[in-house]
């Protein structure tokens, strides 16, 4: 019998967000790999199946996280190759700012092994609900913080900017579990090219346990340097400007509207043979 892989999301809040299909895949698996965000959520998953294997053992400070992630993929794929029904359960959404599930599925498909992903409620989903942000209102762009720093990006100050893993800002080695004030200063300097120094930003952390208090701390942009940041802290930067009309495009659209209106008003021609 051929092995298979399903990557599922367990959502952010223990017990509140997991979908029926994710629960069912976990129950019917031969082996479940877990990558949870707290020890208590790890224990919760342990109680759902009698063969749950945590992937935490692959992390080590000072070790390039890409090596860690690839080791996790290999551990998962080893069991799929051994003809097992494998579930890899990740906190939040298994494929949003989470590379292990994508890499594992990609590798399984290369090896002609069936693999797919079931979505989960992500930190981003919780953020929109908890901070009352509708990403459709003025637009919203998400970046991994370090990637945002390493590459040339165009910031739109009329949209929300959300920076994930801000506690690891500027870590080029991919081997740290946190970075310090000097790194954050570089990030703040970059943001100050667009936003005023007193611009209010939000430090966000979703609820993991029902007894958790969510973090939605409003601070001035420059206070980010000294703020308490964790691996799971997200930086939310609300718009600092209003959306400006694109007159050139609006003009082009008005010309089209006008010509369509004219052709509508024209008498209908009938073909006479």
């Amino acid at each position: 019998m051929q092995g298979s892989l399903v990557c599922v999301g367990t959502g952010m809040t223990l017990g509140a967000h997991i979908s029926p299909i994710a629960t069912s895949y976990i129950a019917q698996a031969d082996v479940v790999f877990s990558l949870m965000s707290t020890g208590i959520t790890e224990r919760w998953l342990d109680e759902m199946h009698d063969d749950v294997r945590s992937l935490q053992c692959h992390y080590k400070e000072g070790k390039n996280r890409n090596i860690t992630y690839n080791e996790m993929v290999e551990a998962i794929l080893t069991e799929v190759r051994a003809s097992k029904k494998v579930v890899a359960a990740f906190y939040g959404h298994p494929g949003v700012f989470a590379c292990v599930g994508h890499r594992a599925i990609k590798q399984a498909k290369i090896e002609d092994l069936p693999a797919h992903m079931e979505p989960g409620i992500s930190a981003e989903d919780c953020l929109y609900a908890d901070l009352a942000i509708d990403p459709g209102k003025t637009g919203c762009i998400n970046y991994e913080t370090s990637q945002f720093m390493f590459y040339q990006r165009n910031i739109d100050p009329a949209a929300h900017l959300i920076l994930w893993q801000v506690g690891l800002a500027g870590d080029k080695s991919l081997a740290k579990f946190s970075t310090g004030k000097a790194y954050r200063q570089v990030l703040v300097d970059l943001l100050l090219e667009t936003y005023p120094s007193d611009h209010q930003v939000i430090l966000y952390q979703a609820k993991i346990l029902p007894i958790d208090t969510l973090r939605a701390e409003h601070i001035a942009l420059t206070d980010l340097i000294a703020a308490e940041l964790f691996m799971h802290t997200t930086l939310v930067i609300p718009p600092s400007e209003k959306m400006r009309p694109n007159q050139e495009v609006l003009h082009k659209l008005a010309v089209i509207d006008k010509s369509e209106l004219k052709s509508k008003d024209r008498p209908k021609l009938r073909l006479v043979l």
Binding site: S146, L174, F177
Partner: peptide, 19 residues
């Protein structure tokens, strides 16, 4: 609660590389 349940308090929760 983590202490009472004797669960590991040091969990790494980054699952995305910058590059």
């Amino acid at each position: 609660l983590e202490r009472q349940l004797d669960v590991c308090p040091d969990i790494v929760c980054t699952v995305f590389p910058a590059e």
